[in-house]
Amino acid sequence: MILGVVILVIAVVVLILYAVGTYNGLVRMRNEVQNAWSQIDVQLKRRYDLIPNLVETVKGYAAHERQTLENVTKARNMAMSATGVPERAEAENVLTGALKSLFAVSEAYPDLKANQNFLQLQEELTSTENKIAFSRQYYNDSTMNYNTRIEQFPANIVAGMFNFTRREFFEAKEPAEREAVKVKF
């Protein structure tokens, strides 16, 4: 009888310990996902800040590329106002495409390519593109980890009890659009 009670108590304690451990693990993973998401945000903001400078610099050398410049500005404003993960991913891809064509156009202007300010902006924007890509990659990795974890048995019981829900991936629709801006000089 006493032995039975002892075994029961031990079993309950082990279960509780497991649940606490799993819960803490899930919280940690969810925080990691949130952290990764805010990192993407930081980089996207950095890109929004750099674009007006770039547009101004290019305008000085290639004023009649008005259409391309307008496209970039428009795409930037659209991306800034987009909400929700898939919409945002979509808008960011359009912006990446617009930037790509802006850099392609600037190929035709040797003076622009020699401008120190332009070169600096280009390095910053290229690196920011990379940072966006890498933070997106990290976000998707942690999201994948987290989603797998909350679906696995028996962690899914704890996840269900405390309302841990799936997160969406930050994904581009077209694989071709995933590529970062490629600038070659």
Binding site: N35, S127, N130
Partner: peptide, 18 residues
């Protein structure tokens, strides 16, 4: 060396270092 810092920061982000 802004470029070197950029490369390192890119990897800091990719690895999720704080």
């Amino acid at each position: 060396s802004p470029r070197l810092f950029n490369v390192i920061e890119e990897m800091k982000i990719a690895s999720g270092l704080n």
